[in-house]
Design a protein around this nucleic acid. Structure first.
Lengths: 205, 205
DNA sequence: CCTATTTGGAAACGATCATTTCCGAATAGG
DNA sequence: CCTATTCGGAAATGATCGTTTCCAAATAGG
């Protein structure tokens, strides 16, 4: 029994995995977003990910672990895209708009119907699944903090009214964004979605 | 085979039902709100409703029918409570505030953790369940319309600024309310919830 | 009082669930 | 080249799912 942990080299002994974990998780994200955790069976995941159940259970401990890995992957990708978008912001107000528009873009059309994995997890799992709840909370906190920082930045660069209360307004914007995800499940109309963004922006005047 | 439909009298032949349907549905609403549709088993419903599976299937066609009946009951009760609250409104602006406060009250604390059945249904079932989706859409439309009517009324009685765009603002308020329900699953803090309401009200100035 | 009908309740149903087991194939290290 | 290890894949596992069946009990109408 050789308990030697192979450092440096990415590979250890044994037959190499024939699929890419992140690519597989991207498929899982779609399924979990559409059907939810309890609505998704291992057979659904197997089909969508193009794997056998056996391979799934060699890569992940159980269904719950697949879900958490999917959630983490989802957040990682979305946060990266958002950061890229925010890097383009000219000032605080523009940053708030870019952030609202980023989510509005995801909340309408087919993506809106598919839904947001974070919102789905909050609604379906937050009460009974502590690990899921912690992840959702961290995700929400991050958004709220980002909104608040952009508002403060805007107040310094003159693009946001000084009388705006940064924390409460950030939390309202967070609510709006989550709400758009809910509305996007049944009425994912593009211009209605963006009209909400426009009204929200008037809070910064 | 007597196909005589007993009119007038509420009762037909056979052993009478020993439980009240609405009381049973109120228990089912709690379970479905907490666990979602797919996360709720017939055994869960049987235990919560204090019935046997056999009795459930005599009162309802199947699990889906229990869910839809629960949803309808939920909306009926909530709408009644909201109407009572709105009847007290002194003017348009006050009506908007009462409506926002009504939902904020449900979105925090234990009720917030439990969740809103309409939001849960939108997120979990809207894509693949047409009957559920239709109900959610009707519910959302009703809220939006009510918000819009209150805004217009406020513009007539002078309590809401004329420059406010009624439809877009109503939709934003709807988004805020649904978003509060999502946030209430993980951070159901009372004052944070109501601070969002206060900020939203400034849109009417 | 008799018949038809519906309920309550327990037990049983097949289907599907998440998960494991088993075996041949493919790799790394010695 | 040999051994240990991991993978892919199919088949099997026990548990739980939603639903039905069956029988005694309780009502209405004739």
């Amino acid at each position: 029994m050789n308990v030697d942990i192979s450092l440096a080299s990415g590979r250890t002994a044994g037959r190499p995995r024939e699929f890419d974990i992140d690519e597989a998780l991207d498929k899982a994200i779609t399924v979990f977003s559409e059907r939810g955790y309890h609505g998704t069976s291992i057979a659904d995941l197997r089909d969508a990910m193009g794997l056998t159940a056996g391979s799934l259970y060699k890569a992940f401990k159980d269904k719950h672990a697949i879900f958490l890995a999917s959630f983490d992957r989802y957040k990682q990708v979305r946060n990266m895209l958002l950061d890229e978008e925010l890097a383009k912001a000219e000032n605080g107000r523009d940053g708030v708009y870019r952030m609202l528009a980023f989510y509005a873009e995801g909340a309408h059309g087919d993506g809106g119907r598919r839904g947001c994995l974070a919102v789905g997890t909050a609604v379906e799992l937050a009460i009974f699944d502590d690990e899921a709840a912690r992840r959702v909370e961290r995700s929400m906190d991050r958004f709220e903090t980002t909104f608040e920082a952009l508002i403060r930045r805007g107040q310094e660069d003159g693009s946001v009214n000084r009388s705006v209360e940064p924390n409460a307004t950030a939390r309202l914007l967070l609510s709006v964004v989550q709400g758009l995800r809910v509305l996007g499940k049944t009425s994912p109309n593009r211009e209605q979605t963006f009209s909400v963004v426009d009204v929200a922006m008037t809070l910064l005047d």
